[in-house]
């Protein structure tokens, strides 16, 4: 077997083991706690077909909030990161503060968001965005700070204008690291939106899950969780691939 084939086989083996573990857990914990893999997949099929309308409505709600939150966390995060990266002293002053913000359990702040934005879409969006902003900013800041001085000197020797310096030197040099930040920000923003929906919302996939648990509707809970899991994993896989590709190119 070739190396790549062997690796794919091993990865498949891990996946099989995960499903086997799930099945075993189902036998131990019983029907009231969770559904088996086969039952979950069957119900996922049902959610996507016969119950498609209801599911699409909630998925759309989550998707819409997520896209808005993502746009906000990317825009604000990049603006902060680029500004702090360009100005060395501000960067040095702000970095530990950003790291402290990153390690705070932001759920504790959710009530503040709710008080400011009220129940509804804007609160979810804001909550998702505060999760994503910090990693995007930190990675962008470091990306710009760590550009080799020789690049900038070369640009000076070639008498590039400020616009050209940014578009042909700074941007390509910082891009791989920035994309890593965008990838991390993507996951955290999704986490923020879902947690927001679980706590205070009447719509969206997070609400579907928490509502299902309150109704002891194990099937819905497992199926929605499974779908979210798969969607997040696929999105992350694509972003990871872009990330690796960019890092290899430089």
């Amino acid at each position: 077997m070739s190396d790549a084939a062997k690796r794919s086989f091993d990865i498949l083996l891990v996946l099989v083991a995960l499903f086997a573990g799930w099945q075993a857990l189902y036998h131990v914990a019983g029907e009231t706690a969770l559904t088996s893999p086969a039952q979950t997949l069957a119900y996922v099929g049902e959610l996507l077909t016969t119950k498609g309308d209801m599911f699409a409505r909630h998925a759309w709600e989550t998707g819409r909030a997520f896209l808005m939150a993502l746009g906000l966390s990317y825009a604000i995060g990049l603006a902060i990161g680029v500004a702090l990266g360009a100005h060395r002293l501000s960067g040095a002053v702000a970095e530990p503060i950003l790291v402290a913000l990153y390690s705070l359990p932001k759920v504790t702040l959710y009530p503040v968001i709710l008080l400011v934005f009220g129940l509804g879409l804007s609160a979810k969006v804001a909550f998702g965005a505060i999760h994503g902003v910090v990693p995007v900013a930190v990675f962008a800041m470091n990306a710009i700070r760590n550009i080799k001085p020789a690049y900038l000197k070369t640009a000076k020797t070639m008498r590039l204008g400020p616009f050209q310096v940014v578009s042909t030197v700074i941007f390509p040099a910082a891009l791989p690291e920035i994309v890593t930040g965008l990838r991390v920000g993507f996951s955290l923003t999704l986490l923020g939106v879902i947690i927001g929906e679980m706590f205070a919302s009447k719509q969206g996939l997070g609400f579907m899950v928490i509502n299902a648990i309150n109704l002891a509707d194990v099937e819905t809970m497992m199926a929605v969780a499974f779908l979210l899991f798969v969607a997040a994993a696929i999105a992350n896989g694509i972003l990871l691939w872009i990330d690796h590709w960019l890092h290899k190119r430089v």
Binding site: A29, S187, L190, M198, V218, L228, F229, A235
Partner: peptide, 16 residues
């Protein structure tokens, strides 16, 4: 993938 998936969603399973 681990930190990319919102696995808080499985907290209810643990409660169950």
């Amino acid at each position: 993938t681990y930190y990319a998936v919102p696995f808080f969603i499985f907290y209810p399973v643990l409660i169950a």
